[in-house]
Design a protein around this nucleic acid. Structure first.
Length: 721
DNA sequence: TTGTTCCAGCTTTTT
DNA sequence: GCTGGAACAA
């Protein structure tokens, strides 16, 4: 068999990883070192050369995007369909196992997945029903607690409070939450993983079955696994040493979400016969960029150790711009983007990366005024929009009448005269009787409990659901979705909303019908779910899928977190200031600070050709003016990779004359030698002036705080002389 | 039931 | 300083 096509495009380390005999393997893959390539070729190699059946391959990723990419690439390489392979996200695969073995897992066959939004609602309602003050016990915190326990593999019954009042309450709430989920047939994200783990752990025949089936298990981005995920992998591969993991400890940026790098070390001791291969040759960035990244990350402790190198050229130096404030920073960035665009760069090859979403605004405003198309990543996803979730809630309730969160969501949306009093009494009754809201409604109506008006409204709702159910029975999936939109009154309801908003919502509902029409039911052996249930699960598990589609040519704006895994020819990394990046909450804690540093490492290594870093000397944050010092990360990047940029005032003679002309055009409010005072820095003397209008700035020698450039428009200077 | 006002909160995000 | 959610009034 000719296998050269599988390996002759690989470098030495990659080839060793791909062709190693079946055993536990740890591939430490630096940024841009071709890790997906190794994974894909490894799978292809095992099938084509080692004769493994596609059926016996399991490959796990974290995002749907990564899973799809992997499947596509394997398919392309092997040139045959790959349905038999289990390639998916941890959550997707856990869901698959749970729906196949729902009864063994003690779940209703039509159990549904609930997203974090739904989860939070459940918790809020729980607090209300237990009459707990949500000021003292913030729902978000409870949600965080529950998820963190589940990530650790712990149920409420495993926890003890040792007299700690806070813990005691948390455990109580966790327990109550578990009861509600169980009764409603709902499973949250963390629960998918936990339950899938428990299922295999406690059902020997299933464990044996899957252990035999999956002869090879591959994991991408292993550094992001949490405890349960690793335990699950361990169950599947224990004693067989057939676990192939790819990861980069230096790119672990999800510790706050339960990821633990320590899993890499655990892997090493749990699989003592493993082989470790480092992929250090980088095919993405210039040497200067890599040098900066390498140096920066050496400031972290407890690394596996790795140094990226490239045999392409040194490339340009990294630009460093010190802005006066966040507006100036945006001016500078957009200015530079325009220069690059004029030089022929495509917009989609340029990215602005920031630490927190709030930072995007300044850049958006500038891009908007300059009429440069851009796209902000993150934000609300299609399946998370209120109108979509409402429509889906109807469908969910149709599929499972005990789905209380869905019931709550739509019982009075659109408004049908079922008020808080009616609802409260239903809730109370449901809680007392340990039944769902739907069941409570039925019972109460039979008992003639309500006033005629309330009873009528409720009956109408029941009739609506009944109606929908009969009408939907024989129809195609997309017809069901369409019909629900119409019959539920949602479309009618949104028509009455403010023009734009309502219209957009109706369009989204139409888009939902299209999504249902395009939905490709993954028909497999052993699949028992109806197409509707499958679609609903898809909507929750792959809520991000609908937005990645457009490949328009525009500037890319995103957080550093969402940039992981991507690459751009030209990257702006902005807001490199203490308190912002590294974020204020991470500064005291070494572990968190190191995670910030890894985040910075991720940011740097996104850039292929040009990298431009900036920080502001003054920044308005939460309505307050702050004067942060430049990020410590800047000091950790070697000086000889950096080139400082002075905006419009650079060394070249031409620019200087240019600047000189502009100085004349300034407001004339201040002159060299003027004594002024500043709210924060105190008294000082003006040394230089430059720029005009919004850009007018002055260099001041402060008695206490030293030399500073300030924007006249923002500095609120007071004249002393 | 809707519109207004007030008030807390405010890193990162996928599933 | 802005935003989203909750409380409140009409």
């Amino acid at each position: 068999m000719d296998v050269s096509s599988l390996i002759n495009t690989l470098n030495d380390a990659q080839r060793r990883a791909v062709t190693a005999p079946s055993k536990a393997m740890l591939i430490l893959a630096g940024a841009g070192s071709g890790k997906t390539r190794v994974l894909v070729h490894r799978i292809a190699w095992q099938i084509q050369v080692e004769g493994l059946s596609p059926h016996s391959i399991l490959a796990v990723t974290f995002t749907n995007k990564a899973a799809h990419e992997m499947r596509d690439r394997v398919e392309k390489l092997l040139k045959f369909p790959t349905q038999a392979m289990w390639i998916g996200t941890f959550h997707g695969l856990a869901h698959r196992i749970l729906r196949r073995h729902a009864s063994e897992a003690q779940l209703p066959t039509t159990f549904q997945v609930m997203d974090s939004d739904d989860q939070l609602r459940v918790i809020k309602r729980l607090l209300k029903s237990m009459q707990i003050d949500d000021k003292k016990w913030p729902p978000k915190q409870i949600q965080w607690f529950i998820n963190a326990q589940k990530d650790e593999g712990l149920r409420a019954k495993h926890l003890s409070h040792n007299g700690d009042f806070f813990l005691e309450q948390m455990i109580k709430l966790y327990q109550a939450y578990e009861v509600i989920c169980h009764r409603s047939g709902l499973v949250d994200f963390a629960e998918l993983l936990l339950k899938a783990h428990e299922l295999l752990r406690d059902t020997p025949e299933l464990l044996i079955f899957y252990r035999q089936r999956f002869r090879q298990v591959h994991v991408d981005e292993f550094q992001d696994t949490n405890k349960v995920q690793y335990a699950w992998l361990r169950l599947l591969t224990e004693g067989k040493d057939n676990l192939f993991i790819v990861g980069d400890d230096d790119q672990s940026i999800y510790g706050w979400r339960g990821a633990q790098i320590v899993n890499i070390f655990n892997f090493q001791s749990d699989y003592p016969n493993h082989e470790l291969i480092r992929l250090e040759q980088n095919y993405r960035s210039t040497a200067h960029i890599l040098q900066a990244a390498n140096q920066l990350i050496t400031h972290n402790s407890n690394r596996m150790g790795k140094e990226l190198w490239t045999d392409s050229g040194a490339g340009e130096l990294i630009s460093l711009y010190s802005a006066f404030n966040e507006r100036d920073e945006a001016y500078f960035v957009i200015d530079r983007i325009q220069q690059w665009l004029e030089a022929g760069t495509l917009k989609k090859e340029v990215a602005i990366l920031y630490r927190s979403n709030a930072q995007s605004r300044q850049f958006e405003e500038r891009l908007m005024t300059e009429a440069i198309p851009y796209r902000v990543y993150g934000g609300l996803r299609f399946f998370e929009r209120a109108e979509i979730k409402n429509a889906l809630a109807y469908l969910r309730l149709l599929s499972n009448r005990n789905d209380d969160p869905s019931f709550e969501r739509i019982i009075n949306t659109p408004t049908r005269g079922i008020g808080t009093r009616t609802l409260d009494s239903l809730r109370e009754f449901a809680k007392d009787q340990q039944i769902s809201l739907w069941q409570a409604t039925e019972r109460r109506i039979n008992e003639n409990f309500f006033s005629p008006r309330a009873a009528n409204a409720l009956k109408k709702f029941q009739a609506l659901m009944q109606d929908l159910e009969t009408q939907l029975q024989e129809s195609e999936l997309y017809e069901k979705v369409k019909l629900v939109g119409e019959k539920s009154g949602l479309i009618e309801f949104y028509k009455k909303e403010k023009e734009d908003r309502g219209e957009a919502r109706i369009e989204n509902l139409e888009e939902l019908v299209n999504a249902a029409r395009a939905f490709d039911y993954p028909h497999e052996e052993g699949e028992t779910l109806s197409d509707l249930d499958m679609f609903l699960a898809h909507a929750t598990l792959e809520s991000g899928e609908m937005q990645g589609a457009d490949a328009d040519d525009c500037i890319q704006l995103m957080t550093l977190h969402s940039a992981k895994g991507l690459e751009f020819k030209q990257v702006f990394m902005v807001g490199l200031e203490e308190g912002l990046f590294p974020s204020g909450r991470s500064i005291e804690d070494v572990a968190r600070l190191e995670e910030e540093r890894r985040l910075c490492y991720v940011g740097i290594t996104r850039a292929m050709e040009k990298l431009c870093i900036s920080y502001a000397e003054s920044r308005r944050l939460y309505g307050k003016e702050s004067y942060p010092s430049p990020s410590r990360f800047l000091r950790e990047i070697p000086k000889d990779c950096l080139q400082e940029v002075r905006f419009r005032a650079n060394i070249s003679q031409d620019t200087q004359r240019h600047t000189a002309k502009k100085v004349i055009k300034n407001s004339g409010l201040y002159h060299k030698g003027d004594k002024i005072s500043h709210a924060k820095f105190g008294a000082g003397t003006i040394l230089q002036l430059e720029g005009e209008g919004a850009h007018e700035k002055v260099q001041i020698k402060f008695r206490e705080s030293g030399l500073k450039w300030l924007m006249v428009a923002y500095a609120k200077l007071e004249r002393l002389s």
